[in-house]
């Protein structure tokens, strides 16, 4: 479990990294389509810290917050965005396929829901080897429309796997709301009927979320069953890209205003003001900014994978 300050640091790192993408994207040096986490950061931060980071995760193409919450590796993050060599993916992954399995972020996938099944296998391996570790799949509400979500849920429950299904429910799948995609009224009634622990959350508060996740983990230990969280959140920016999309009028701005009031960074920061000196908070933020800015400068100048090497890495090479 993380302290308020640690939670805030993690949230701030994500927010600031994405802010830098927004500032710099026009330079056209980060040539990878961006699905921004902006506004939704509390989910991976609260979930991973609720498990004391002892987890392996898979995520969708909306991967920035997940990657940074899990690995805090902002260097690899920007090297990958700039398509540079000095990262695990060597620039072959970009924004949609961020991952570093050795640091517990197994993969991010651009095919809706396709990252879900792998988490059941990760969990199975942990159970098989008796390792006290959880697998987490993060996915959008749109992924619930897909068959492989239900297949994965079913087999996770059947095998009683140590896995968290985390639905990042931002209401929208691109421009289609849940109500236009679901032939049922109440997800809880359906998912809740599986042999699992069902949770809902809409606080936007990473601290509350981490507590609930921790509690769920303990429930698993007493009586092993998978865990499902439906976590409401709000995507501040367009489905893809770095801009807002109010001008398309497909979703009312007043809903945004409501969520903005309980912005997940603001919630944690308000708590810090009670405990800490303003300057300390300011320093913490500036520290993160400095480090991130330095990495971006380095990334820009760093070398890229020679295209002669593009055939490497298709198969495992350390045998």
């Amino acid at each position: 479990m993380k302290s308020n300050l640690e939670l805030y640091k993690s949230l701030y790192l994500i927010r600031y990294c994405e802010q830098r993408i927004i500032d710099l994207y026009h330079e056209n040096e980060m040539r990878t389509p961006m699905h921004m986490s902006f506004g939704q950061e509390y989910i991976p931060v609260g979930v991973c810290s609720g498990l004391d980071m002892k987890c392996d995760i898979t995520s969708s193409y909306r991967s920035h917050a997940n990657f940074l919450a899990k690995t805090a590796d902002y260097k690899s993050f920007f090297y990958e965005m700039y398509g540079k060599e000095d990262t695990v993916g060597k620039g072959k992954c970009g924004s949609m396929h961020l991952g570093d399995p050795k640091k517990g972020h197994i993969l991010s996938s651009g095919i809706v829901a396709s990252q879900i099944p792998a988490a059941t296998g990760l969990a199975f391996a942990n159970k098989y080897k008796k390792i006290q570790n959880f697998a987490i799949c993060f996915f959008g509400d749109g992924a619930i429309d897909s068959g492989c979500f239900w297949e994965s849920l079913n087999l996770a429950c059947l095998f009683k796997l140590p896995v968290f299904f985390i639905c990042e429910d931002n209401e929208w799948a691109v421009h289609t709301p849940k109500s236009d995609r679901r032939g049922y009224k109440d997800l809880k009634k359906i998912v809740g009927n599986f042999d699992l622990y069902f949770y809902e959350e809409e606080s936007n508060d990473a601290e509350i979320l981490q507590k609930k996740v921790n509690e769920a983990k303990n429930k698993y230990k007493r009586n092993p069953k998978p865990i499902f969280f439906n976590i409401r959140c709000y995507r501040y920016l367009a489905h893809i890209g770095i801009e807002t999309d109010w001008n398309y009028n497909y979703r009312p701005k007043k809903v945004y205003n409501k969520w903005k009031k309980k912005d997940c960074l603001k919630i944690q920061k308000d708590k810090l003001f009670v405990k800490y000196d303003k300057n300390l908070i300011k320093n913490t933020e500036q520290n993160i900014e400095k480090k991130v800015d330095a990495v971006i400068l380095k990334a820009k100048k760093s070398k890229s994978l020679n295209s002669r090497e593009m055939f490497k890495g298709l198969f495992y090479e350390n045998d």
Binding site: D56, P101, G121, A125, K129, C148, L155
Partner: peptide, 11 residues
């Protein structure tokens, strides 16, 4: 995907 995930974790 299940067998894939299990292989990533060493099975």
């Amino acid at each position: 995907g299940f067998v894939f995930g299990s292989a990533v974790k060493g099975l």
